[in-house]
Design a protein around this nucleic acid. Sequence first.
DNA 1: AACGATATTGCAATCGATTGCGAAAAATAA
DNA 2: TTATTTTTCGCAATCGATTGCAATATCGTT
Lengths: 352, 352
Amino acid sequence: MQGKASCRLHGKVVCKTTIYDIAKQAGVSASTVSRVINGKPGIKESTRQKIKKLLEENDYTPNVAARGLVMQSTRFIGILIEDIRVSHHTDSVYVIEQEMTDCGYACITFSTGPRDEQKVKYIELLEQRRVEGAILVGSMFATEAVRQSIEKHLSGIPVVLVNGALELPNVYSILIDEERGTQDGVAYLAGQGRKHLAYIMDVATPSNQRKLQGFRLGMMQCGLTVEESYIIQAPGEDTNPSGAIGRGRVAAGQLLAKCPDVDAVLCATDLLAVGCLQVLLENGVAVPRQVAVMGVDNTLYGQICTPTLSTMDNKLAESSLNAAHVLLDVLEGRSTSHKIMLLTDLILRQST
Amino acid sequence: MQGKASCRLHGKVVCKTTIYDIAKQAGVSASTVSRVINGKPGIKESTRQKIKKLLEENDYTPNVAARGLVMQSTRFIGILIEDIRVSHHTDSVYVIEQEMTDCGYACITFSTGPRDEQKVKYIELLEQRRVEGAILVGSMFATEAVRQSIEKHLSGIPVVLVNGALELPNVYSILIDEERGTQDGVAYLAGQGRKHLAYIMDVATPSNQRKLQGFRLGMMQCGLTVEESYIIQAPGEDTNPSGAIGRGRVAAGQLLAKCPDVDAVLCATDLLAVGCLQVLLENGVAVPRQVAVMGVDNTLYGQICTPTLSTMDNKLAESSLNAAHVLLDVLEGRSTSHKIMLLTDLILRQST
DNA sequence: AACGATATTGCAATCGATTGCGAAAAATAA
DNA sequence: TTATTTTTCGCAATCGATTGCAATATCGTT
């Protein structure tokens, strides 16, 4: 027997009003109230109106968790991202949240950090919340540990990976051809007659490795040889975005020391490139006359620094939008593709 | 009668295993399983072990929604923010999510956009999800419409407002003394002997109005008169952060046209300041020799532009951290303060 | 007035948990 | 062996919804 009236304490509603409260007031059963709420047919117009009025008056709001329990659907999706503070990641989250919210889903977002154990932990949290789908943004989710965790905890629900692939029947991938994009960048710089290209590498994520691979391929295709000492690893593995400039500065310092005749630098991210730019200018190197600099991500930073930064737009927002659409397709029973590949754009500004 | 075994389809688990599944396998009742899961006493050690093993083997994960239904607690909190893409907002969300996640809460985050109706809509969504608390980031939430909506939909749960106040018994406020901060900025510039200060105003949020008020007060205290035509309204009301630079540029154009002897510009945000800087430099104005420029927010942009930007650090991340702590205090029954006021810092760089 | 057809509504089970209280089982005491 | 205590465990209600099926109400017909 249910039907306890919503309890009030000090005038504040402590328990929200339920369909039983409404039913009692209307002198009908909870079933009838439920049918009115959901616009089901077979209710006399007069009672429908009476109930609607009561719902209004009592500020009734359905408990979606209770509804979800019987409907077997939470209308939650999960978003996992390494660090939401990274500016292009923010755009991704924004796009996904907008799109999913519009379709009646709510997003549970976690910044996982770089470590696999953390990622696995958050995957379990998503399972506990019974999300109906998940989007993992970033190539760092394409690891074996994550694969196993998805298989164990997220099997049965669609998972979309942005900028990475995972061989699992329920995993969909949005891929970005960063390798090709980096090749394009190299080709452009080589086309300017530059011959001694350097590369500033970020932490060795799959995405960064693809970019580096693109650098090597591009060099080869342009008939240039890669001098290994011209591939410089930015120090540390801090994910805090504000640290990236400093890391770029350190790398640029090494560059100046080790690469005397360098005439172009490709950087794995815009912020590394900004740090690099700063050091070059501070040391009297003319950019782009003596050394050209190119970044990746097409962030606002590149529009602000001086000289403005040429960069590879890796379309993270667009791929996230694609991810949301793929997820919605699967959730709503439409057919969709398991793999989508996007091409990058070269954005040319003053630094090249 | 419950106890349907978890159904499998094509090898994929479609229904997660429940405590009834475990109970049946163990030959006990669901109550016993529940007690083992929650570490309750009064269970024979041998059966406890047996059940624990089964939980492991079956990859059991509690359905937190079902649990929440009976426990009357969802362990969800809501975060409302106008636009998560704005960089200091991102930091706020990051900090809040970290803090709440650490304490076992999950966050439902919505970017509401600038309009009141949207904000109200998202407040209702939070109610539907039965969040146990909410944090609203930004002064734009301090409106009458939002106040009423909170009173109607979020009464009974703690709500923390970052950078704004609302007179409601369950609303807590983290305030930032931006008025005072702007006064400090004016005082600093006046101390350099500058006398003709301009102000580039952003959309008229309460926060921005407080800053403008600080500008007026500061001028008065320094014995300077405010020339109304030196207060320039940046055009548009686009919340897309990437548009702010352009808006700053437009404002700076007006500045050059209308304010011949200007020798300092305070801007409502860093990005406006960056746009302003660009236009000044393009027009051959020496910064800071002829005109000093100062922003607000202490974003990374200010460290990147040339010259680097002096700015007022309004401690949004710190205030968000405070907000999370206040919310946790209330949720966990500790006493806390209804209002916290933070002071800003002046960050001095090359542009002044 | 009696009947069948249709329009409304309620009962009760269900979703996946938690928990107070009583019952059965085991351990201990008499 | 019986009585008593203490462990251990299950029953059933509960949280707030949804829904198939059965029951009742209403209506038109003859």
